[in-house]
């Protein structure tokens, strides 16, 4: 808990470090969300395609596309700066 004594001083570097640590925390959850939505969306597309075309390999291709899309977005949003 932030004590009230700290608030008056509010030394800038300390506050900045805290803020960037908190943003990092959010970034990890965002990475998780990107991976999940990539897999779910393109995997779901693959499953639908499988269902209508009576094949069984398209879901695997969909999952791989989703995985690479998620990783690509993470690369662009968080790693390449």
């Amino acid at each position: 808990m932030a004590s009230d004594g700290d608030k008056g001083k509010s030394s800038l570097p300390n506050n900045n470090a805290k803020a960037s640590a908190i943003r990092e925390d959010g970034a990890f959850w965002s990475i998780f969300a990107y991976l999940i939505s990539g897999l779910l969306f393109w995997g779901g597309m693959g499953a639908l395609a499988d269902h209508f075309l009576n094949t069984s390999f398209l879901i695997l291709i969909g999952l791989l596309i989703g995985l690479s899309a998620g990783l690509g977005l993470i690369w662009m949003r968080f790693i390449r700066q």
Binding site: S30, A33, Y34, I36, S37, G38, L40, F41, W42, G66, A69, G70, L73
Partner: peptide, 11 residues
Amino acid sequence: PVEFATYFVTR
């Protein structure tokens, strides 16, 4: 679609 799903569904 992945970006859209992230912002409007997954998060």
